[in-house]
Every structure is written in C-alpha cells, then in structure tokens.
Design a protein around this nucleic acid. Structure first.
Lengths: 123, 123
DNA sequence: CCGAATCCTGTTTGATACTG
DNA sequence: CAGTATCAAACAGGATTCGG
C-alpha cells in the first residue's frame, strides 16, 4: 500500500469501512455484543443489560448478528425452552475495535464536559 | 475498575459505547471523516471521494459533525465562494478507532469470502 | 420463559431541481 | 462552487398480541 496514491488508499478504506459498518451499524448491535462479552447469556439476561431494548428489536438484531456469524444461538430443549447466545470467534475478533470505541467514547465525553458549550445533546 | 462487578462494568461500557455511537452513527459520518484524513477538503472534493452521497446528506452530516466538534469549516470569501473542511483535534483522535474499524472490515470480508455462504449481502 | 407476528409511527435517507 | 428546498421512499423502532 506504500506506493499507492492517496485517493486510491482512500477508496480502499471507504470500502473497508462500509463492510464493517454494515455489520455493526445500528443502535443495538454494539450494545448486544458488549453484553455478550461478559459471558454467554440468555434472551432475558441481555434484556436486563440493555434495559430500553424491546423484545422485538432484540430478537431481530440477534437474528441479524447470527446471520453475520458474529454470535451463535444454542437451543436447549428443556422445559421451558432455554436459549443461550454467545460470541463466535468472529464476534470475539471485534474486541479491539470495541475497546477503541469505548476509549473514544470516554474521551469524547471528557472533552464535552470540559467545554460544555454547543454540541448536540441528543436526548 | 478492577474491583467492580461484571454487571457494573458492562453498564459502564454500554454508556461509553452509546456516547461514541451517537457521534459516529450513520451511513455517512465515518466515510466523511475518512475522506478528511487525507487532507483538508472542499465540499466537492468530499463528494468526489464518496460518490453516492447526495449534496443534501453531505451538507447535513457535515453540519452535525461540526456541532460535535469533529470537523471545522473555514469559509474563504473569494469568488466563487470556497469552503474548506478539516478535522479538529477531536476528529483526529478518532484515528485509532478508524484503524481498528478498517482492519476489522478487511478481516470480516476475508472471513466471508472464505465461507461464502449465508450472511447478509444487504444490497 | 423466549420469542414470533402484526400493525403503526416518526425519523433517515434519497432524487431532483434550484439558488447565491 | 457550495449548498437549499421539496417531496417521496425506506427503514428503524415501538406497542401490542399471541404461541410453544
């Protein structure tokens, strides 16, 4: 990549970022993945972590993440039924990215508190 | 943080991730920031990098990113008018996060090409 | 307990044309 | 060149109800 022109590199990166964004985009996917980094969990457990998610969204996003091979779903045929979700190796490979995201989130908040003015509060 | 319980840490991380996501969420913000890492650019230059963005979305997202202090806007009062966008220090501080995002995007694509099956193509 | 199915709403995004 | 304005489409998200 060292010999490529800036514009070519930029295009390459734009594509890579889109691939990544397609997977983790949305309000709930990152939170769900974070919740699952603390061990395998059941539907209700995740709901407890992310209190403002509706069952519909949780169900829907779990399904999508499963299609992307980020998480896996294990059904125990007990009574009542029990389902356990966990991160796949691909899901685990997000860990460094998540770390940076969290670091930056904290950094951003510090900056905003320091300056206090302007910026979007967005709820 | 070493002494905190898993659940507390999880909640803490969920909040940090939301702070970060509020800023970089959306289809266009990351691409715009990536485009600007290759030097200060004008409106039309960014449009050339991101070919499928509409002027409306570009304008709107630039405005939002400016409010978040991620980028800054400089108006040169020439004829015709010229505007230059650049990353602020806060915007530059996203660089490690972006790197990880790109790395993961490439990794993800490799995985998907290897397996080939399932997964969402999404378009 | 763990969801699926349905219906409904508001926000996001987009296409296109237009302006200083 | 650097955007606005307008209108339409798409999608995310919520409320509620139902089933194994």
């Amino acid at each position: 990549m060292t010999k490529m022109k800036n514009n070519t590199v930029c295009q390459y990166k734009l594509i890579a970022s889109r691939d990544a964004l397609a997977v983790i985009q949305g309000k709930w996917r990152i939170p769900i993945i974070i919740s699952l980094t603390y061990g395998n969990k059941r539907f209700g457990d995740i709901q407890k972590d992310i209190q403002d998610i509706s069952p519909k969204m949780l169900s829907q996003e779990l399904k999508t993440l499963e299609e992307y091979k980020i998480i896996s779903r294990k059904l125990y045929d007990s009574m009542p039924v029990m389902v356990e979700y966990s991160l796949t190796p691909l899901g685990l490979s997000l860990h460094k990215l998540l770390d940076e995201l969290l670091n930056w989130g904290v950094h951003f908040r510090d900056e905003m508190v320091g300056k206090k003015k302007g910026g979007k509060t967005k709820n």
